[in-house]
């Protein structure tokens, strides 16, 4: 299967790879929200971490790691780009269909975009839980 140029670009030069500490560290950090979605047996696991500026309430930084196909890596890479500078509510407004459109994902890869949306929601929910906002 041939990949779209944007998928290949994100795959070859993934943006914002990394995390804000070890699994244990980020659990206790109140300024960081962590989303871990997918399952190894399904061939996709996405980890998305957001760092929120307390005063502005905006996502100042976002990092990802992804175990998955090229489209999954590209979807999560794109998600980090889009999240930076947004408020939590703005982050929640990102729809998987926008990711599909931006990356020109074929129908068999739509689940990758769904997973990225899930990861965004999970990371924001984690931040809100840690900060008593839900």
């Amino acid at each position: 299967m041939a990949y779209g140029t944007k998928v290949v670009d994100h795959y070859e030069n993934p943006r914002n790879v990394g995390n804000f500490g070890t699994t244990e560290d980020v659990k206790t950090r109140k300024d960081v929200g962590v989303g871990l979605v997918g399952a190894p047996e399904c061939g996709d696991v996405m980890q998305l971490q957001i760092k929120v500026d307390e005063t502005t309430g905006k996502i100042e930084d976002a990092k990802f790691k992804c175990f998955g196909c090229g489209s999954a890596i590209a979807s999560s890479s794109l998600a980090t780009e889009w999240l930076k500078g947004r408020t939590l509510d703005e982050g929640l407004s990102i729809k998987n269909t926008e990711i599909v459109e931006e990356l020109s994902l074929p129908p068999v890869k739509i689940h990758c975009s769904v997973l990225a949306e899930d990861a965004i929601r999970a990371a924001i929910a984690d931040y809100k839980t840690k900060n008593g906002q839900d």
């Binding site: 993934p14 790879v17 995390n19 699994t23 871990l36 399952a39 399904c42 175990f67």
Partner: peptide, 23 residues
């Protein structure tokens, strides 16, 4: 380097023990 699972492995977390949500 991109894999969250490899990080967990390095941290000594057994990924088979995590409750993953199959999708």
């Amino acid at each position: 380097q991109l894999s969250p699972l490899y990080d967990m492995h390095k941290e000594g977390i057994d990924i088979t023990k995590i409750e993953w949500q199959a999708h």
